[in-house]
Amino acid sequence: MSNTYYEPSDLRKFGTITEWSEELGKKFFDYYGSVFEEGALSAREKSLIALAVSHVVKCPYCIDAYTQDGLKRGITKEEMMEAVHAGAAIESGATLVHSVQMMNKYKKLSM
């Protein structure tokens, strides 16, 4: 057992989750594989979306995997950083849009 919550080498053990629930694990990995195939969006575009989401959900395993995936696809660091900013903008927007609720409440409670 590791002394830290996150262990980089655990990423390569991801597939072993099927050992404790084969049916659900297999369904998940089949679905996951299908999602990232070429479709209406290219696999390259999906890789960048995955990288942005990885940051938003703050998953170090996903960041590791999709930085590497981007490098394999020849995606540049500028493209990667722009994708992360797109994710960050939505995330900060999601926080800030709640300030309308704060403003509404403030106004309602104030004379």
Binding site: A43, R44, Q68, D69, L71, K72, R73, G74
Partner: peptide, 18 residues
């Protein structure tokens, strides 16, 4: 050749991008 410690991606996709 990849410029770092990673494997090359799909050859046809890379060719199209190049």
């Amino acid at each position: 050749n990849p410029s770092g410690a990673f494997l090359p991606g799909n050859q046809a996709a890379l060719e199209a991008d190049f």
